[in-house]
Nucleic acid binder design. Structure first.
Ligand code: MN
Ligand code: MN
Ligand code: ZN
Ligand code: ZN
Lengths: 141, 141
DNA sequence: ACTCTTAATTAGAACAATTCTAATGTGTTG
DNA sequence: CAACACATTAGAATTGTTCTAATTAAGAGT
């Protein structure tokens, strides 16, 4: 009955990314990556960690989210000029954004096609194309 | 040689929107709407007003931008979680965003077609679809 | 295990964008 | 030209985020 079993995958992820598997990074990594895809804010993840009994400072939550993003374990989603969302789904995809509640939902990147995009202006190239479908009302269920 | 001539269109716009044509709103309206479409931040518009010799507080710039937005004279563009952009082009369109410089460029809404969008989840409806093409590098010219 | 080095964590201060408050000023209407 | 409602303002407050500088912990070498 090894209790450290659930740490192993996160441990591996961190090692692969060249990040030391510290207590804080392991705990945050488990919260982020165990279970399905998630969209979190720093503040929300910090509260979640506290509730889970993990003592980690808000500064470390920010540091960790940015390091994970730099390591492509996360990506940022910009939908609201008031807060930054981090997304555990790093595959090519887009988003529904429920403006009222602040909830994000994935839209598979392969399901959507965008035609008629102008070429990138001279001297530039596409870094990414983001589609944000803003929703009014609240999803049932 | 009427010097108040350039104020007239903004004056009309404000009246139509049910906003009192105050000195500040007229001045900001002229800066925003005389000349082509623009994408501005509150801070940038405030500085521009100062440079133009218009004395207006930053609080009023924020108030005015929000009132203009509520009146559909402007719309907000969310591309950067650090600052809010206001857009004088309220027609249906999308954006190039030059990440390095923070510049926005319009993409005509009719040029782009998006296919394969899932239906809005039950209880919700589309408020808007935003396409943001993030550019790396800097446009020449 | 102990030590050394370097990286990570932290509390709290600092910061930047934005909003709020409450006092003053101005546009409009009668 | 009141009187009232609305607008503007300075400055304080708030929020999300980053920075600083001190402490702690991880990994490597012994
Ligand atoms: Mn917002
Ligand atoms: Mn902020
Ligand atoms: Zn996502
Ligand atoms: Zn635009």
């Amino acid at each position: 009955m090894k209790e450290d079993r659930p740490f192993a995958p996160t441990m591996a992820r961190l090692r692969e990314a060249g990040l030391r598997p510290t207590r804080q990074r392991l705990a945050l990594g488990r919260l982020l990556f165990d279970g399905g895809d998630r969209h979190v804010t720093a503040e929300a993840l910090h509260e979640e960690a506290q509730r889970a009994g993990v003592s980690v400072s808000l500064a470390t939550v920010y540091n960790t989210l940015h390091q994970f993003t730099a390591a492509s374990l996360l990506r940022e989603v910009v939908v609201d000029s008031a807060r930054t969302y981090f997304d555990t789904n790093v595959s090519d995809h887009h988003h529904f954004f429920v403006e009222k509640s602040g909830h994000l939902m994935d839209i598979d990147g392969e399901k959507i096609a965008i035609t008629g995009l102008p070429e990138a202006p001279e001297g530039t190239s596409f870094a990414r194309v983001d589609v944000i479908v803003r929703l009014q009302g609240e999803p049932r269920g």
